Each structure stands twice: as structure tokens, then as C-alpha cells.
Computed example of a mutant assay.
Amino acid sequence: MTDPLQDPRFLQDPYPAYARLRDAAPVQRVRTGSDGLHSYLVTGYAEARAAFTDPRLSKDTARFFAGRPSGRELHPAVSQTMLASDPPRHTRLRRLVTKAFTRGSVERLRPYIQEVTDGLLDGWAPGGEADLVEDLAAPLPVTVICQLLGVPEADRAAVRGWSDDLFASGEPARTDAASHALAGYLAWLVAAKRSTPDGSLLHDLVRARDGEDRLTEDELLSLAVLLLVAGHETTTHFIGNAALALLQDPGSLARLLDEPEAFAGALDELLRFDSPVGIATFRYSTEALTLGGTPIPAGVPVLISPGAANRDPVRFAGPDGLDLGRDAGAHLAFGHGIHRCLGAPLARAEGEIALRTLFTRFPRLRLAAPEQEPVRRRTRLMRGLRSLPVTW
């Protein structure tokens, strides 16, 4: 199979391609680059779940690419985050971060998330139009994670721009430049938090310890980058995808409007139906293995697709339909195993508050151009919308 990114239809709707791949084999070798690079793509649910926890599939990208010229100039703080590491380093870093990023802290953030959501929606004029992505789905999680990390309001627009550029698929120079701009800014911010404590998450990370073990400067910077980017990109796409799914399914939306408290229970199915992560971040085989009946040699890239796995009919009956009564708690939108998204509780809180508030305040919300296909972002990793015009 050729690189799916070369086919505009894949970016708009990858699910037919995922289904064809999965029907042929839940794990198979595909071309994933114009330079002839091949990877093993995992599209089956059982196989994806197994791959997420298989210790023979490493996330240590620095080790994989050592001695291999890439032609890229990504800043190490972006290319070598906690996500790109294995135990014991990953275990240590995650433990240090978790101390400053607990479920309790997310619960304490809920009033602030509600306040930000209300403030954004207050700007939606009666009988008007808005871009649901630009006017809610994007600014909400950016504002929350910047507040949590202690990013000054005056800098947040620039931070969002650099983060967006990191996912500019097909534009490596733009991505590399953004990685250096973002890392440079966060290095300055870390120094500012060290000299002027403010109780932010970033300041907590400066102080975080595991016994006598502190984060090094490089580790602190890479964690700051990871939390900032991961703390809003996926949530933006989750809110946008979920809102679109509900707007295209008036029956499901009407049932939620009858019981607004049911929005929290609908999150798992909305995440399963259109996962904000299409293909998870890079892994490679450290030794030969067999997955889903497919032999995988040592030393090759392995890509796991939560988007495909969440539509596997072997695990979810009628997977191409939105069913808010479905028990979808086993979805893989947040990954699985030791690398499961650390920020999942925050993403769920933001998604639930945003969707419930949006549709209860604007019960007659509808797509401004229902006959047009929504414009998707050009990235294989994330599945999200560039814009979503709505009216009411």
C-alpha cells in the first residue's frame, strides 16, 4: 500500500482504508514515506492492545535513529520526550510528573474550565455564526494548559502557533523551526519559574523529586514541551470531532439534551467513534516477533492505529455508527499500558464541560454548511478539524 498521506481521501475519511487494511490482515507492512520507507501498521483492536504493552516494541527513538541520518533538525526537547523513552527512564519521569499532575488537581480545575468555557461562549452573539474550532475547541484547552503551566496570557497565541506548526505534515522545515522556537521559549519560562515561584505546574516540576532524584534541565524542558503540546492538541481535536459527530446525528444529540448529565457518559463512545489520535507515535521492534499472525523482523518501525482499532467490528459491533448506549470504555483513543495518556482525566473534563455547555446554551446549534465536507488537518498522527462553521 502506498503512503496514505498521499491520498487526500485518507485525510478526509481514513476509515474505509483502515477497514480494507484490517480485513486483509490486522497487521501488515505498508509504505509510509515517499523515500520508500516501510512500517508495520496495526489496525486490529486485539493486536493494537497487545502492541501497546509489548516490551519488544520500543519507543526509544534516539536509539533507533542513532547513526541514521534523518535530514531533520528537530529540537531534542521535542524529539526526545518522555513519550520517546522506555523503562526505567520512562517509569522515573512519569512518576515525577504524576506527583505534580494528579486526578485531584484536575477536579480542582473544573470550575476554571467552566469559567473559560462560559467566557468563550459569551462571545457568541444570538442568532449568529461561529467557527466551533477557532472559537471553542482550540482556545479552551490552550487556555487551560497554559494557565496550569503558568504561561503568561500575552504569550499564549505564539505558543499555540508553534504547537500547530509542530504538526505541519509535509513541511519538515516549518516543523523543525517551530520545535526550536517552542523549546527556546519554554527554556526561558522554566528559568523564570525557578527565580520567581508561582505555584504553577511548571514550578512544581522544577521542584519535583523522587527521593534525591531531580529532573535534569533537559528532562524538565522536554516534559514542559510534552505537557504543553499534548495538553491541548488532542483535546482540541476530541472536542471538534465529538461536536461534529453529534451535529451529524440529531437523534443522539436530542437524547443528550433531554439529560444533560449524560454528556459525561457519552465521552467514551465519542472518543471511540472518531479518535483524536489516528496513528500513535513511533515504535520499533527490538527483536523479531509475530503480531496478529504477521512476522515482524527486528529493527523496523511499528505504527499502532487507535483510529482503526476503535472501529474493529470484532470488538465493537456496528463500529461505523455512533451508539451512545454502547459500553465503549475499552476504547484505545488514549492508548493503553504504561504510555497511556497522562492527561486523559483533564481531556475528559474539558470535553465534557465544553460539549455539555455548548449544546445546552445553544440547543439549536447546527452546521453552517452541512452539504460541505469539513476541512481536516493534514496530519497522520492527529485526526482533527481545521475549522467547523456553525450557526444557531
Rank of each mutant, 00 (worst) to 15 (best):
P363V: 12
A354Y: 02
H237M: 11
E129S: 14
V144I: 14
D327S: 02
R366H: 13
F362L: 15
H232S: 06
D23K: 11
D210V: 01
G184H: 04
V27C: 11
G329F: 02
D122H: 12
L365F: 09
L388W: 10
L322V: 06
G36R: 10
A368S: 09
V144P: 04
P26H: 03
F316W: 10
T357R: 13
S305W: 05
G299S: 06
K99A: 15
L270V: 01
L205V: 08
D165H: 13
R272D: 00
A62L: 12
E212A: 15
H203Q: 14
G123F: 09
G231F: 13
D176Y: 06
E269F: 02
E352S: 13
G44A: 02
T81A: 06
V225F: 09
L148G: 02
C341G: 03
P8W: 09
A347Y: 04
D204K: 09
F10P: 11
D131L: 02
G351I: 02
D118P: 01
G150T: 08
L5T: 12
A178H: 10
L257G: 11
P345W: 04
L74S: 13
R72F: 04
D274E: 14
M1Y: 10
D258W: 04
S163A: 14
L332S: 03
S275V: 00
